[in-house]
Design a protein around this nucleic acid. Structure first.
Lengths: 127, 127
DNA sequence: TCGTCATTTCGCACTTTTCCGAAACAATTC
DNA sequence: GAATTGTTTCGGAAAAGTGCGAAATGACGA
């Protein structure tokens, strides 16, 4: 009776409709991160972040790949929903301070983990 | 701790993330309708449609005004979230057949209600 | 004034989402 | 092999979303 052809789009919009997931997407604009770094920046349990990332991956908004023990995440350039995401950035202006704080923290983490003890950020591009 | 500045945007995305509300927005692209016409086309209880419209109005995506006994609804041209909505239309391509059916039914209703028995569609533009 | 009709609000049942910690997996290091 | 570490899956609890019919509201018309 209803419009199931709208389901993929609705799925994408649901994936976008959460502050944590928007913060993750904004973080990834600066480049890839590993799951533990995202969890650290957001101050959430790794399992929670993992579940949010699963949602984003299901809609094709991000891609993930393993690097040793770590799972790296990045924005998927070729995502069908990319135009929606692009339309979103300007509307995040009201949150730019908070988002900038997230980004600064991620930047710090990235440097910190260049030493062998942390996530060794090889930043490789997979297929 | 979290990003409450993202709340308005998240609210907009949540408002968009439902097939019924997307169908309503698509319907309104052809022009204003009254609530009972929307309910008729979608085959839903008036109370359900009313609640969906309340959500859309809260985010500023639609505007409503009274015309006699009826409440007319239209897309809000000046909505802050309008760019997101515009980015959405192309992604609704997969549903264009169902949406076209909705629109045809609405068109029929609009004509039918030009006689004094139904909703008398004055189609006036309020402030 | 009373009845009718379009709409909204309310109460309720039901489903989905969200978050966490515990346990299970996976890959590395000792 | 055993311990460690990053990640995911699972179970469950709390919160939010969804849809309806019944009742309340508001406006028109007889």
């Amino acid at each position: 009776m209803t419009t199931d052809t709208l389901r993929p789009l609705v799925g994408t919009l649901k994936a976008l409709a959460h502050p944590v997931r928007l913060r993750i997407l904004a973080l990834l604009r600066d480049g890839e991160l590993c799951v533990c770094e995202v969890a650290e920046v957001l101050g959430l349990a790794p399992s929670t972040v993992s579940e949010h990332l699963t949602g984003l991956r299901r809609t094709g908004l991000v891609r993930e790949w393993k690097v040793g023990r770590w799972v790296h995440v990045a924005l998927a350039e070729e995502a069908a929903a990319r135009p929606v995401l692009e339309a979103l950035w300007p509307l995040m202006a009201a949150a730019r301070e908070e988002l900038a704080r997230d980004r600064a923290q991620a930047r710090a983490l990235r440097c910190e983990t260049c030493d062998p003890d942390g996530c060794p950020a090889p930043r490789s591009k997979p297929a």
